[in-house]
Design a binder for these strands. Structure first.
Length: 407
DNA sequence: TCTGGGGTCCTAGGACCC
DNA sequence: TCTGGGGTCCTAGGACCC
């Protein structure tokens, strides 16, 4: 029995590529998706023309503007990207049911089980690449390897728009000279520590005993030890329900006004509730996060005996948690967020069933109205207050852009 | 030039129980 | 008055990924 074959597929500069496809007049120009230059935020994606100026995803928008003022800055249309993503995964599932959605634009396919169907896996992987590019109109990079880490590193090598395969016998040569930051799990902090030890290439990592990595990075260190050697037994997970769902907002300017903050909290609770209904999930844990003007984060969470889904219950808990944070807080807030976790499929029947049922029906009625007239069509008085200060954006209607809120 | 939004997973300390 | 060890649950915080 031969080993596994994993194909990793990654759409190049996804959001920017969709924009170019739909707006041909943008082609050839540098594009940054994520927000307008003066807004608080970072680039979610930029195309290769923008990268030539040193812009990269994750870079603050203002900095991107400094480097490349002639770039086209777009806020982005996430529902549109979602639709492209769905088409992408539908196509991939024609080849195997073992498809993992690593993100909107990134997938792992395990072809191992389908061996009888395909004479030559490399040829199949190339065919997948060609079909995605033809049918979606987006360039993709494809990597093939005997496990997930090697397939992913192969894709990195293949970018932009290429194809690369790592075979069993070539693993050592392939890995030796790659930079340590190529390994997922070695982020900025870990990099600093390793470089201080004179470790810059994956090959350098081979000299470090497992115990040393464990000491430095805990369980993640053991993962790094194995990945540096191209060892990875993680399965391709075709479906797993979400573990948490959250909604958060960074304000265009820091806010201290309590009423305004509560209005945002209500709005986030409302959107979180909608997301839970869409997934048919109930939350045992509600968490509120704040980010202070000096960028420190603080969270408070509460474990609930009865899981919740409706906006009223979420907001009730969130408001209490928020007050606990706010009362000890000496700075204006940059961000508030609400998160639901410890999610369960269906709520078990409780003594309060009649009450819950009413809130549930209210939520469903809300959904129907909004489906027809947009999210902003029906809001609580508290949210309405937010809208009075900062009008909801009409054309999208769904995501409140704090950016458009201030004058 | 300040630093998004939506996730995953791990760690550490204190409470509590036996 | 002095006082263990282990297990589990809960909470807060943080690194990391796309």
């Amino acid at each position: 029995m031969k080993g596994r074959t994993i194909v990793h597929v990654d759409i190049d500069a996804f959001f920017a590529a969709v924009e170019e496809l739909l707006h041909p007049e943008l082609r050839g120009k540098p594009i940054v998706v994520g927000g307008l230059p003066h807004e608080r935020g970072v680039a979610a994606t930029c195309n290769y023309e923008a990268r030539r100026y040193g812009v990269h995803s994750g870079m603050p928008l203002r900095q991107a503007y400094e480097l490349c003022p002639q770039a086209v800055f777009l806020r982005g249309n996430y529902q549109l990207y979602q639709a492209f993503s769905e088409k992408f995964f539908r196509l991939l599932r024609e080849y195997t049911p073992d498809v993992e959605e690593a993100s909107l634009d990134e997938a792992y396919l395990e072809l191992t089980r389908c061996r009888p169907l395909y004479a030559d896996f490399s040829a199949t992987a190339r065919e997948i690449k060609a079909r995605v590019e033809r049918e979606l109109g987006l360039k993709v990079s494809v990597g093939v390897g005997p496990n997930k880490i090697l397939a992913k590193l192969a894709t990195k090598k293949a970018k932009p728009g290429g194809f690369f395969e790592v075979r069993e016998g070539e693993v050592e040569d392939f890995l030796r000279d790659l930079d340590i930051e190529a390994i997922p799990g070695i982020g900025p902090k870990a990099q600093v520590e390793l470089r201080l030890l004179g470790i810059n290439k994956i090959g350098d990592l081979w000299g470090l005993p497992k115990a040393a990595l464990r000491q430095l990075f805990g369980l993640n260190g053991e993962e790094i030890y194995l990945q540096a050697r191209g060892i990875d037994a993680r399965p391709v997970a075709s479906f797993s329900p979400p573990k948490s769902i959250s909604r958060e907002t960074t304000f265009l300017e820091d806010i201290w006004d309590k009423k305004l903050l509560l209005a945002h909290l209500a709005y986030l609770s409302d959107r979180l509730s909608l997301a839970l209904r869409e997934e048919n999930l109930y939350a045992h844990i509600i968490e509120v996060k704040i980010r202070l003007a000096d960028f420190r984060n603080e969270v408070k969470r509460r474990l609930l005996v009865t899981p919740v889904q409706d906006m009223t219950s979420i907001y009730r808990v969130a408001r209490e948690l928020f007050f606990e944070l706010y009362s000890s807080c000496r700075l204006a807030l940059r961000l508030v967020g609400v998160k639901a976790s410890d999610l369960v499929r269906a709520r078990s029947l409780s003594l309060f069933e009649p009450y819950c049922d009413r809130f549930e029906r209210l939520g469903q009625a809300l959904d129907r109205v909004r489906e027809k007239y947009g999210f902003g069509a029906i809001l609580t008085a508290r949210e309405r207050m937010l809208e009075a200060v900062y009008p909801l954006e009409k054309e999208r209607g769904f995501v409140l852009r704090t950016a458009s809120l201030t004058r």
